Amino acid sequence: MSTGKEELEVDDDLVELEDDEAPAPVVEVAKTNLSKRRTIDNLLEERRLQRQLADYDFDL
């Protein structure tokens, strides 16, 4: 356990970014991931419906 008397090392090498150098927003990645997820969900739903249709007894 720490006794509270130890000195912690602090890195003061932070680089401040100007407005022009701001990192790109992560929104694009989220949109891409959501789009991929929707595509996968649609394919799985289609596969499920095709399986149900194949299992359906047409001779009722």
Rank of each mutant, 00 (worst) to 15 (best):
S2N: 13
S2D: 12
S2W: 13
T3W: 08
T3F: 12
K5C: 07
E6I: 00
E6C: 01
E6Q: 08
E6A: 09
L8M: 10
E9W: 05
E9Q: 04
V10D: 01
V10W: 01
D11S: 06
D11M: 04
D12G: 07
D13A: 14
L14H: 10
L14W: 10
L14Y: 08
V15H: 05
E16Y: 08
E16I: 12
L17E: 06
D19S: 08
D19G: 02
E21N: 03
A22E: 12
P23F: 08
V26L: 12
E28K: 11
E28D: 10
V29K: 14
A30G: 06
A30T: 10
A30E: 14
K31W: 08
K31N: 07
K31H: 07
T32G: 11
T32S: 15
T32Q: 15
N33P: 02
N33V: 10
S35P: 00
K36T: 04
K36L: 10
K36G: 05
R37E: 15
R37C: 15
R38L: 15
T39V: 09
N42S: 06
E46Q: 12
L49Q: 09
L49H: 04
L53T: 08
A54Y: 02
A54M: 01
Y56H: 13
D57G: 00
F58D: 14
D59Q: 04
D59S: 08
L60H: 13
